[in-house]
Amino acid sequence: MREIAKLVLVLGLICGISAGSLATVRTRLADRIEQQNDLFVRGPALELLLQQPANDILGHKLTIDTPEGSMVVFYSQESGTVCGLAIETIGKGGYGGDIAVMLGVNMESNKLLGLEIIKHQETPGIGSQIEKSAFRNQWLGLPAHGPIQLTNEGGTIDGISGATYSTKAVIQGSQKALSAYMNSKDQISDLIQQSDAADQTQLDS
């Protein structure tokens, strides 16, 4: 009996210490891991959409609440005024699962700055054509009040033949981002002002 108690005690202690040390390392590094993740996964898309170095934009990260859940929004500034937004959403119903897309919107002209695919698992050669610029460029310059639709539904987007699911998932994702933008414009402006104010106080102090 005493032997078993000793076994359990030693194993339990080792597990406890290792869980504790992992949690410590995790809390130390969590922010940096997220930052790196942003830089490498979202950075390239952000640079293309907003035409600024990724490091300038990544600090400008907001999370907005919409009826469809919370969304991540990045914004770029030029001489103090906000010019571009990049909204990240998940398009449901792709052939290989969800597709993460990022939609750029110009806040002044209310036109789209373009579309980037962040993450997808579509079939190489078929569904993966959503990554091609010929397909994505169709979003460039569209009005922000939408709607984004396929040509056979009365819209302007030519689908990819053989990749209906992939196309629809991308359209669904970008439409979601657009409606979030139209509905939460004020919320976004408020949040930007708040974070600017916070930055300012940090600089002052």
């Binding site: 040390s21 992992l22 995790r26 940096r32 891991i33």
Partner: peptide, 13 residues
């Protein structure tokens, strides 16, 4: 796991 986290934080690529 510690190595995993260090790599993610400092050598993401």
């Amino acid at each position: 796991v510690i190595v995993e986290m260090i790599l993610q934080a400092y050598f993401f690529g």
